[in-house]
């Protein structure tokens, strides 16, 4: 009975992965092909949500929460605020010519082809991703690694965030005493 239940959960989980992967690809295509930038931002939010579901499927719970808060919260609010501030909510956006679009799509497709070809050359990754350590992605475990092995990069990233904040304020500030 429990083996049957396990197999059932397995099949459900696999189909969830393929469904969510399909949704990720569809919505990321919509991000780059929708004309209106506000629609792009909204599709980007849905794409980030599908990535959160991927993290949950991988049992990386801390990253799922951080992705949810940082990407779907903070970064999306930044994008929407800038679009609102610049009043870009219109469809009359200048587009590249069709030739440049086709060349860009071919170039991206060539990159994809190269990477997939390199993947096909390595046949050793047919193995399934099995969660061997169930507490790997939890806050307790990640915090121990972060504050033991990666303490210096962590502190440096805090300095980076502070300088980014100061830089952003300096850049976006209106220059009252502008240079003539």
């Amino acid at each position: 009975m429990s083996a049957f239940l396990g197999a059932f959960i397995l099949i459900i989980n696999m189909s969830i992965f393929y469904l969510v992967a399909f949704l990720s690809i569809v919505f990321s295509l919509l991000v780059i092909f929708s004309k209106n930038p506000v629609h792009s931002v909204l599709y980007l939010i849905i794409t980030f949500f599908t990535f959160t579901v991927h993290y949950i499927l991988l049992n990386a719970q801390f990253l799922a929460i951080v992705n949810f808060i940082v990407y779907m919260g903070a970064i999306m609010v930044l994008f929407l605020f800038v679009i609102m501030l610049l009043n870009l909510n219109r469809d009359t956006e200048p587009m590249h010519s069709l030739v440049i679009k086709i060349i860009g799509i071919i170039a991206g497709g060539c990159l994809a082809l190269t990477l997939i070809g390199a993947l096909k050359a390595t046949l050793s990754y047919k193995v399934p991703v099995v969660v061997t350590k169930s507490d790997l992605g939890l806050v307790k475990n990640l915090g121990k690694v972060l504050f033991n092995e990666f303490l210096l990069p962590f502190e440096l990233s805090s300095v980076l965030l502070l300088s980014a904040m100061v830089g952003a304020i300096l850049l976006a500030k209106k220059e009252s005493n502008a240079i003539n």
């Binding site: 991000v31 049992n59 991206g108 990477l115 193995v127």
Partner: peptide, 28 residues
């Protein structure tokens, strides 16, 4: 433990596709 059985190269494939969609977006 039995939660995840998706092959690793499907994750690589998904990441490659999304990355290349991003590259195409930058270009076009």
């Amino acid at each position: 433990t039995n939660l995840q059985v998706v092959p690793l190269n499907h994750y690589i494939l998904l990441s490659v596709i999304v990355f290349c969609i991003g590259v195409i977006g930058v270009l076009i």
